[in-house]
Amino acid sequence: MSLVDVIKYEGDNQTFVWKHPREDFNTGSQLIVHESQEAIFFLNGQALDSFLPGRYELETQNIPLLNKIINIPSGGESPFHAEVYFINLVEQMGIPW
């Protein structure tokens, strides 16, 4: 895991909701939300914030240089799970709401 992660949408334009494959982002990670998208940030299973288009710095409880020490009791896995879901807001796919 790098010191600073860049989190951005990597799916296709036909996807309505896309979950970033990585979890457990480091504090200071950069979130990039493109036009016609919204991102929702979850920390430990709780939705904490939604982000409109732009660039944001995330604050999580994962500290890059201390992760190995902090994660020893949990078998090397971070106890602080952070997830980002991207939602496409473009009208497409012929979905009637």
Results as ranks from 00 to 15, higher is better:
L65P: 00
I32T: 04
K68V: 04
S50T: 13
G54Y: 06
I72Y: 12
R22W: 14
W97D: 15
P96S: 14
H20F: 15
L89P: 08
M1W: 03
L3P: 04
K19S: 13
I87T: 07
V33L: 06
Q92W: 11
Q14E: 15
L89N: 10
F41K: 00
P96Q: 09
K68T: 05
W97N: 10
P96I: 14
Q92L: 06
Y85A: 05
E91A: 14
E38H: 02
F86D: 01
Q37N: 08
N67L: 12
D49A: 15
Q46T: 12
T15H: 10
N67E: 15
R55M: 13
L65E: 00
I7E: 03
S74R: 10
H34E: 15
L65C: 06
D12H: 10
G54T: 03
I40F: 14
L31K: 04
P21L: 03
N71G: 07
F41S: 04
E77G: 03
L48V: 14
G54D: 05
E57P: 01
T15I: 13
F25C: 02
K68R: 13
I32D: 04
T60S: 08
V17G: 08
N13T: 12
P21A: 08
F42S: 11
H34L: 11
T60Y: 09
L66G: 00
F16N: 12
E57D: 04
P73R: 01
K19F: 08
G75W: 07
H34G: 06
Q37A: 01
P64K: 00
A39E: 05
E35P: 10
M1P: 13
E10H: 05
G54R: 05
L89S: 06
G45L: 12
F51T: 00
T15F: 04
I40P: 04
G75F: 03
I32G: 09
V4F: 09
R55W: 01
K8M: 08
W18Y: 13
N67V: 05
I40H: 05
P53G: 03
Y56S: 01
Q61D: 09
M93A: 09
I70G: 05
T15Q: 14
K8R: 12
L52V: 11
